[in-house]
Amino acid sequence: MNVAITSRSFFGQALHRPTPFLDFLLPSFTIPSSRTRYAPITSSSASPNTEPSPSSLKSFSSNKRRKPLSKTQREFLDRGLRVNQAGELAATLIYTHQTPPITRAHPHLRSLMHRMYFQEAGHFSTFNEMLAKHRIRPTAMYPVWSAAASVLGWGTGLMGREAAMACTEAVETEIGGHYNGQVRVLLGWVKEMEDKGEEVGEEVRELVSTLKRIRDEELEHLDEAVGEGAREAKPYELLNRVIRSGCKGAIWISERV
């Protein structure tokens, strides 16, 4: 009897809280996690510690930079900011069209969706201002990206919470990487300017801090999407691949036209 009790409690425990070494007793219907390939950027919402933050970024002298940016530098900014605006346009539209089906099925996601939407709308107007101020043309594919982003948002919204979150994860991974690349290049310029003993202009300094802030917010969305079960989306691998290659293609095109 004593043995029976011990064995029952043992199996009870084993069934309710399966310990790793008894896993093999249960039939496995799920794909072992080691075989699933996740997106390479697993982020933390904080800026990486390794990112240099030159001291001149923190000085608040409002001096204008004397030496103009070089032609290649201006071209880089032209292309970069154009892509950023197109990206934020798409993000705003994706969240706009995902929100109704998602919040109807999962009312607890309402605040998350709205917060992400408002942040994206803020980024979008920031880049709109920058484009107008620096006379950078918007991408010629504007109507195409608008339509594509609306369809993507609506489609993944209808597919359910996990698909919508997988879409967010894929988009934010690409855009986070894109912003990271820009920040890296800009920090490179800042370092070069410092080495030459030049004044780092107000505008470059502001641009770096704005881009960093926006990048961190995008990566926060990525974390939140993963937390809401992005990786349980049914054809996760497919969705992730398709959306990310779509983003890459859109970035490539928007840089050029």
Partner: peptide, 21 residues
């Protein structure tokens, strides 16, 4: 929205491309 956001001061004739005369 972006018409509302931007006021005319922003567009003084002096505003050129980024830090470039």
């Amino acid at each position: 929205l972006d018409r509302g956001l931007m006021n005319n001061d922003y567009h003084k004739a002096t505003a050129r491309r980024l830090e470039h005369e």
